[in-house]
Design a protein around this nucleic acid. Structure first.
Lengths: 338, 338
DNA sequence: CTGAAAGCGCTTACAG
DNA sequence: CTGAAAGCGCTTACAG
């Protein structure tokens, strides 16, 4: 592969000049610029970003560590992040933690070694060594969706309290009184907050949330299935289940289907995070939708602001309930998505 | 951030020695090694991968350019690629082409500038300049799922002919005679091959495939919706539609639902690529499943073989039909996934 | 407007 | 077993 020296000698100028035209430096004579450009084209020269980064101390690359690529919510988030980053001139490299703290740590470490300009993370746990380290190393960082208490960086997320309250009201109106939840890991903010919001909303209706009605999940499909099985084996199973992410809702449906049970007749079901398929499931699933694309955009804006030396603060958006038929018939509230 | 010099002076050795212990060079005295290691720990030193890459001419990074992250098939593929790469000591950076040739080119260019060791691509078009360039630049490359005729690199893909034949037999047995297909872009191999396989299978049953029954899609949701709308406005709409990817099947369902039509009564539906949600849609969708994870693993194996100077050849796996209820009731074939 | 030179943070022959 | 030095491919003051 041709290097800058080849271009320089081919064009009969110094490497400094080649560098200048490549970087759009204003003080280059048009004739010289043309000479260089044609040499570049002729040799098919592609600048070496590695060398440039070593020299400039910036990579124009953002790291994104997400909890699970297989989760459509994160995939949509990643897509939004990618778009926003590209439009600001950054590349993004994604690390998929697969909800495993060890993998998450592997990626933040790797990303840091690659000297990314900033780090966007949706943490899988409550705060590991490499995460603290990166905060200490003062690499610009922003949390998105989930965060870690005690690490003081901007957080871009959606507050689900209002939507969860709406969901509980919806369930209550439909006559459901025994309400259960499938929780995420206690080490994650979203894992805790969604359950807390649910509990608070139940309390407002004078409803309890017994421990047996809190399924321990990990935001992945299998755990939704296991939690649902456990609910069904209770002497008094819940009438409605709120899965705190879409993958656990999928697991719940898997289990229900395997037992020949029907939603909502045998058990009502609702999920946090809306996805296109929820419109077509049997029945369509009532879900809480986050402004995913906007979350991604805002997170990138905050991060690039930090990277480029500007201030950035946290942003809190809100989620909303999209009632469909999985909690019972109530066509007045029937909603669509998009 | 501490550099290798800091570590060296802190440990009272030369930078060469620090480098040696970091790289597991055998001829380092244990005592020296211990000294260095404790300095590394104390300073929280993280080697600069950028500098290392510049020096060694390798990044231990693979580039993966996929057609669409929002498509669960590619997301699953990316996940498999990532896992296989990590287990072989490589990172992977993903570029999402979003089915746009210009974006695809942007990513192969960027990846090449970043001097990735090898490139894995599922091309969105029939062969653009940067793609040819990268082949010419002799960066190790392998195609996965889709490929470009005329670029001589290994191809790792699944042959769907047998499964499509099974699908057509299934549709035929259910009494469907007017069969249509929603195609992908003609510039992609999968776009063409799936239609060709479908046409051939129809011919074997003495069935035609009129032009009006070939919907022009682009593998994304909206195009599936448009193609379905067009089918429905035909004087004689098809009885069954085969969407050549899962997103276009989603679009078809969107359109059918908007018109208050039912699958399979008003129109039977089948899709290429199986996804977990197909089990829970109304009705469950008959699909052709690719061995996605294995495709990803094999592709990485082929690519790392190339990168490390070994030979690598193409590999062809096969896909299989998973009959569910979206083409009509035929419980004998009822199948599950996973 | 352009060139010569230093230097980014590492690795690796080459000596010793 | 370890150090001094060159060099990877760029960018950027510093001169002129």
């Amino acid at each position: 592969m041709a290097g800058i020296k080849d271009v320089a000698s081919h064009a009969g100028v110094s490497v400094a000049t080649v560098s200048r035209v490549l970087n759009g430096h204003p003080t280059v004579r048009p004739a010289t610029r043309a000479l260089v450009l044609s040499a570049v084209a002729e040799l098919g020269y592609r600048p070496n970003a590695v060398a440039r980064s070593l020299r400039t101390h910036q990579t124009r690359t953002l790291g994104l560590v997400i909890s699970d690529v297989l989760n459509p919510f994160f995939t949509e988030l990643a897509r939004a992040v990618e778009d926003a980053a590209r439009s600001r001139g950054y590349s993004v490299v994604i690390g998929n933690a697969d909800e495993r703290p060890d993998l998450q740590d592997h990626y933040v470490r790797t990303l840091l070694e690659h000297r990314i300009d900033g780090l966007l993370v949706s943490p899988t746990d409550g705060g590991s060594a490499p995460m603290l380290e990166s905060a200490r190393a003062s690499v610009p960082m922003v949390f998105v969706d989930r965060w870690i208490a005690g690490i003081d960086v901007p957080v871009v997320h959606a507050d689900g309290h209002g939507a969860v309250r709406d969901l509980v009201a919806h369930l209550h109106a439909l006559g459901h009184r025994r309400l259960a939840v499938i929780a995420g890991p206690e080490t994650t903010t979203t894992g805790n907050e969604r359950v807390a919001a649910f509990r608070a909303a139940l309390a407002a209706h004078g409803l309890p949330l017994p421990d047996a009605y809190i399924g321990k999940g990990d935001f992945q499909t299998e755990s939704g299935r296991r939690a649902t099985a456990a609910f069904l084996e209770l002497p008094e199973p819940p009438e409605a289940v709120f899965a705190t992410d879409n993958l656990m809702a999928l697991g719940a449906m898997d289990e229900l289907r395997a037992r020949g049970l029907r939603v909502p007749d045998d058990m009502a079901l609702a999920a946090f995070d809306d996805i296109p398929w929820f419109l077509h499931t049997d029945p369509p699933i009532t879900a809480i939708a986050q402004p995913t694309t906007e979350l991604g955009h805002r997170a990138v804006h905050a991060l690039t602001d930090l990277v480029e030396g500007r201030d950035a603060g946290s942003v809190t958006l809100s989620a909303r309930l999209i009632a469909r038929r999985s909690c019972g018939e109530d066509e007045r509230n029937e909603g669509n998505r998009r």
